[in-house]
Simulated assay, not measured.
Amino acid sequence: MISAKDIARAADLLHDVVAPTPLEYSRWLSELVGGDVFLKCENLQRTGSFKLRGAYVRMARLSKSERARGVVAASAGNHAQGVALAAQLLGIKATVFMPHGAPIPKEKATRAYGAEIRFVGTSIDDCLRAAREFEAETGAILIHPFDHPDIVVGQATVGLEIVEQCPQVRTVVVPTGGGGLIAGIAAAVQRDGMPIDVVGVQAAGAAAYPASLAAGEPIQLEHMSTMADGIAVGLPGKVPFEAIQQYVGEMRTVSEDSLSKALLLVLERAKLLVEPAGAAAVAAVLDEPKRFKPPVVVVLSGGNIDPILLMRVIQHGMAAASRYLSLRVRIPDTPGGLATLLTQLAAMDANIIEVLHERISETLNLDEVEVALQLELRGEDHRDRVLASLTANGYTYTLN
């Protein structure tokens, strides 16, 4: 098991490599929870996530002969950047397998740190298989994203910083994929006389831990589907699994809607950019704020997101928060019919983003047309008022 001495040694090793990330007070989350909530901003870490910590510790402990063989890794992007930068700092050749469709900024940053990238499959599990084959063929050392003691103790330094920055912490909420981060944090925050509840959060479409913990051993997911590529891991690691069994009190799941709403709110309220995986812990707090005993530290695990995905997630988050509405409304095919509809929407303070006027459709009567609308609203109450107004004025509509 990971000891306090192990974590202290890792912290010493990382002293000149990573800077302690800020712990920011969150007023808006504190109001929801009913007590102090802080954001641990690993999205502001060098390379944009916590992954450099574990990768550097693992690679710095390689022997001279092992370093000469080079390293290989599998990652959707954050671990790739951590390995690539650690390799650059230590003078080691790095090859990284990434899934097809990996975020472009993560790919470009990994290349910029000097690593060679090879694309394979569509998931981390596909990349791990390819990396192991490469290891067997070339002798390169596999730097696993989460399933190695050195990786876990490196990530544990996040937990060490949390208890130093917030000694009174009672709950730590952590995004969870393979388990390296939460296992390290859970081991680091154990203290006599003041129990700390560590809660893991997984995307519902890629949640391997609930079934694995119930079975008492890592269980492979048959399929995964989530925007949170950073925590889309189908098989928990054996090394972190043991620590999670012992130290983690609960593993929760969050929906895609919750992830996108959390990302949007962190951007708006905390002025911080996170990726969907990095917003998972915030999503869990938003889903059930009274569940978490304050003071709460919520880990923002990463901030590397493709701008195109960011636009889609923001739009998704606005729709999930009832701030964006897409619908089709039937109106009479008479002069001024469209103007009347738009005037009524304006009177309800609905901001019209886009209008498409359709006259020809086999589903329309001869005396009517259909208008496709995209509206910006202020929230759920405003949405309900706008839809009620449409109905009261005789309009029929369908939601897209």
Rank of each mutant, 00 (worst) to 15 (best):
K93A: 14
R328M: 07
S63T: 15
L377T: 00
D36Y: 05
L341F: 12
A243V: 15
L52D: 03
R312Y: 09
N78G: 06
L14F: 11
G394I: 08
I151V: 12
M251T: 12
T334F: 10
G237T: 01
E107M: 15
E275N: 11
E380G: 00
A350V: 11
V248C: 10
L286T: 03
K290N: 14
G200R: 03
T340P: 03
P276Y: 10
A280K: 03
I7G: 01
D147R: 07
G336Q: 04
V329E: 14
L90E: 02
L267M: 12
Y324K: 02
R69G: 03
A284Y: 06
T138W: 00
P307S: 08
K93R: 15
G177R: 10
L399R: 04
F292H: 09
S326W: 09
A339F: 13
K5M: 14
T391H: 11
M98R: 01
I314W: 01
I7Q: 10
A320R: 02
N351E: 09
S322T: 01
I92C: 07
E354G: 02
V57R: 03
C41G: 02
D12W: 04
E161V: 13
F38N: 04
A262P: 07
P289V: 12
P335W: 08
I219C: 07
K51Q: 12
G193H: 05
I143F: 02
W28M: 11
V297T: 05
L259Q: 01
F50G: 01
Y395I: 09
L13W: 04
V169F: 06
I352Y: 07
G302C: 11
E376P: 05
D229F: 00
G379C: 04
V254E: 00
Q165K: 13
R191A: 13
I219Y: 09
D150S: 10
A281W: 04
V120P: 01
R191D: 08
N43W: 01
V18F: 07
E24Y: 12
M98F: 01
Q246G: 02
E217A: 15
L341P: 14
G177K: 11
D147H: 09
T171L: 07
P210F: 13
L377V: 00
I308K: 07
A277E: 07
R170A: 14
S255F: 08
I352T: 13
K106H: 05
G337Y: 08
N304P: 12
P218H: 03
Q245Y: 07
D192N: 13
V201Y: 03
R191C: 13
V233L: 02
A346D: 09
P175D: 10
E370H: 04
E217R: 15
G216M: 10
G184M: 11
I314T: 11
L342M: 11
L32V: 08
S301D: 05
M251I: 15
N365A: 10
G139Q: 10
P99W: 00
V169E: 07
G159S: 07
S123F: 00
A280C: 12
Y25C: 06
Q202Y: 11
E133A: 02
L90I: 03
L14N: 05
P20Y: 10
L263F: 07
